Simulated scan of single mutants.
Amino acid sequence: MNPIPFAIVSLSLFINPALALTQLPPPTSVPPATESAAKAAFGVLQGRWVRVQGGYVITINSVDADGRLDASYANPRPLPFHTAVATSDGNSLKLFFELRASGYNGSTYTLSYDAANDRLIGVYDQVVVKQKFEVVFVRSKS
């Protein structure tokens, strides 16, 4: 038996377990500033938004860091949203609302925040009558 290959194999068995014991640095966590930056970006959505076509109202009371909205809808009577969420896609904010109240049964608003004009623009999908409408909501000053 050749002693050189035996020595190499023995040495590798001795070194490899030592490498396995090497401590790796702890994983870095996402800095809290990222969460607060997202919350600050979503904060611009808070307020009372009136739809230009018809006077329907979306009121956004608050937005958590995950984008869940505490929001309500009025047409003119108040209706709860089944789903109300905001997402950040790069520099743009997207909103999605779903209504399941009687007469709405899954109708949705898919909106984007237009920062330059401080408005919400997008599509209202009225599933009951099978129609989609382009919509604009402006911030109410009152």
Rank of each mutant, 00 (worst) to 15 (best):
V127W: 00
D66Q: 15
I8W: 05
S72N: 11
F97S: 01
V138W: 02
L95V: 04
S102D: 11
F6T: 15
L11Q: 10
Y124A: 00
Y104N: 13
S142N: 08
V135W: 07
A84T: 06
F81L: 06
I60K: 12
Q126M: 05
E35G: 13
G43M: 07
R51H: 03
R119S: 09
E98N: 08
Q46W: 00
L24T: 11
G43F: 05
I15P: 00
L13T: 09
S92T: 11
Q131D: 01
A33C: 07
N61M: 07
D70N: 13
L69C: 06
G43N: 14
T34M: 10
D125P: 02
S12F: 12
L13R: 15
V127C: 00
Q126T: 02
P25I: 03
N91R: 13
P80Y: 01
N2W: 04
A41D: 10
N2T: 08
E35Y: 15
V9D: 05
S36W: 12
A84I: 02
L13P: 04
Q53M: 08
N61A: 12
P32A: 13
R100D: 08
A84R: 05
P32M: 12
V136M: 11
L111G: 03
L19M: 09
W49P: 02
L120D: 02
N16L: 14
V63W: 00
F81C: 05
Q126L: 03
K39T: 13
P80V: 06
F14L: 15
L45T: 04
D64L: 10
E98L: 04
Y73A: 04
P31S: 12
F14N: 05
P27S: 06
R139I: 03
V138E: 05
P25N: 07
S72K: 14
N75Q: 13
L99Q: 06
V85W: 03
R68Y: 10
L111Y: 06
Q46L: 12
S88L: 14
A33M: 08
A74K: 15
L19G: 08
N117T: 05
A20Y: 08
V63H: 01
V52C: 04
K39P: 00
Y113P: 01
K141G: 05
L13V: 09
Q46G: 09
I8S: 08
L93T: 02
A74D: 03
T87E: 11
Y73L: 06
R100T: 13
D70R: 15
S92I: 08
T110V: 03
L24C: 08
G122F: 03
D66E: 15
A37S: 15
R68T: 12
K39A: 14
G103K: 11
P31R: 08
S12H: 05
L120A: 05
L95G: 03
W49R: 05
F137P: 00
T108A: 01
G43L: 01
S112L: 07
A116V: 05
S88V: 04
S62H: 07
P78H: 08
D64S: 09
S112K: 11
S88I: 13
A37L: 13
A115I: 01
Y104G: 00
T108L: 02
F14D: 00
G103W: 07
G90S: 09
A71G: 04
V63A: 15
V52I: 10
I58Y: 02
V128S: 06
A116E: 10
A38M: 14
A18W: 03
A86S: 06
T22H: 10
D64I: 09
Y104F: 10
R100H: 12
P80K: 11
G67I: 03
G54Q: 09
A41F: 06
A40T: 14
